[in-house]
Amino acid sequence: MSENRPLRVGMLTPSSNTALEPVTYALLRGAAGSVTAHFARVPVTRIALDAGSDAQFDPAPMLAAARQLADAKVDVLVWNGTSGSWLGVERDRALAAALTAETGVPATTSTLALLDACAAYGVTRLGLALPYTRDVAEAIVATYAKEGLECVLAEPFGEDDNEAFARIPAADVAAQIGRAATDGAQAVAVVCTNVHGAGETERLEQALGIPVFDSVTATLWRAVDLAGATPSWPGHGTLLRDGSLRARVQSVLTDLLGATGADRTTFRVDLPEHGLHVDLTAGEALRDGVRSIRRDASLDQRRLNTVEWLEAERRPLVQPHFRAAPHPPRALVDVYGVRAQMLSPVQCDGALTGWISVHSLRERDWGAADREALAAAADRLTAHLA
């Protein structure tokens, strides 16, 4: 991308959508001219579970539209539609790969963006706010279950006319989001790019206490992020403000888990401007079957013996067992089964801003390669926080 122009997002848009473009333009005000959106339409008018509806999402028209957008030298392409949510996520993964193969431009879709948002925030139980008919809604629940997401489904609006989705009043969409934020939902997704769900996101997140992932917002966020930028735009909810930072934290922790063969990696950090506090993790990676610690805020983390040691020493703490001080909290051992750990401080401007934890459910010696991986992770996180 040239340094002399804004980042360009190419969006493949359902032909009967009327909400997507004005909502995207409203969100882009936060970009202060650094990002522009460019649209091409493909025929989509009806959402149902039948061959006629499915045929609207054939890749050929999308590839033709993508070639036209590529003429505008866009930096990223997105299918700004949620069809993969009921037709299958593998279909969207294949579409994104085909778009890139056809144009040489990185690509994603609205459904993949929603899944990326859930991964960045560690969401495993997701509320759904949908305009569709009940059978389409149930297909979405089944699709997301295959991706490891349990769903809390608010009663859908029962529409199948794509143009009509945008005529659902924003207040009704907001009320539906509230109904989906029950039963242990860790976030709510508005799954449709022709629904007015973005305007109330900031207010609803404050009222409900959980993230709200509007499809239009999520698609723009992931497109900009995929193009190599890091959106941090206030006023539109946590995803456009904090999502890229959380995704980068998650990537570091996943890499660290693989490099060390540990059972759990976490990062805790005090960044109030991003809604992060050390008493809840900013990210977590887990081996299969390992219990999550992500949402346990029962301990005052700064008062723990191990954290006070990090504050005083400002160097990694490597513990092959817990028979010597400093001792971890009993809950880490008794509730979460941890028997060995490494901790590394992460500092900004001389302050202990946060720390990485690497947990093992058995006693183990941490070798030189483990320590090097921890040091590299700390360096990467420090760079992301800068």
Rank of each mutant, 00 (worst) to 15 (best):
P211V: 01
P211L: 05
V212N: 07
V212F: 06
F213L: 12
F213D: 05
F213V: 02
D214M: 02
D214F: 03
S215Y: 02
S215T: 08
S215K: 02
S215C: 14
V216Y: 00
A218H: 07
T219W: 09
T219Y: 07
T219S: 15
L220F: 07
W221T: 04
R222L: 00
A223I: 01
A223P: 05
D225C: 03
L226P: 09
L226K: 12
L226R: 13
A227T: 06
A227Q: 05
G228Q: 06
A229D: 11
A229K: 06
A229W: 02
A229C: 02
A229N: 00
T230L: 13
T230P: 00
P231A: 05
S232Y: 02
S232V: 00
W233K: 07
W233P: 06
P234S: 09
P234V: 11
G235S: 02
H236F: 13
H236L: 06
G237W: 06
G237S: 03
G237T: 03
T238D: 13
L240F: 07
L240V: 03
R241V: 03
R241S: 11
D242W: 00
S244A: 15
L245T: 11
R246F: 00
A247N: 08
R248S: 10
R248A: 09
R248E: 05
R248G: 07
V249L: 10
Q250Y: 02
Q250A: 14
S251N: 03
V252M: 06
V252N: 03
V252A: 13
V252T: 13
T254H: 14
D255S: 15
L256M: 03
L256V: 09
L256Q: 04
G258A: 10
G258H: 12
A259F: 10
T260V: 01
T260A: 03
G261N: 01
D263F: 01
D263A: 07
T265Q: 00
T266L: 15
T266F: 02
F267H: 11
F267G: 09
R268P: 01
R268D: 06
D270S: 13
D270I: 07
D270K: 07
L271F: 03
L271R: 15
L271P: 04
L271S: 11
E273N: 13
H274F: 10
G275Q: 12
L276G: 04
H277L: 14
H277Y: 14
V278N: 08
D279H: 15
D279P: 03
D279V: 12
D279K: 09
D279C: 13
D279T: 14
L280I: 09
L280W: 10
L280Q: 09
T281I: 01
T281S: 12
T281A: 14
G283E: 06
G283C: 08
G283F: 07
E284I: 06
A285W: 04
L286K: 10
D288K: 02
D288L: 02
D288V: 00
G289N: 07
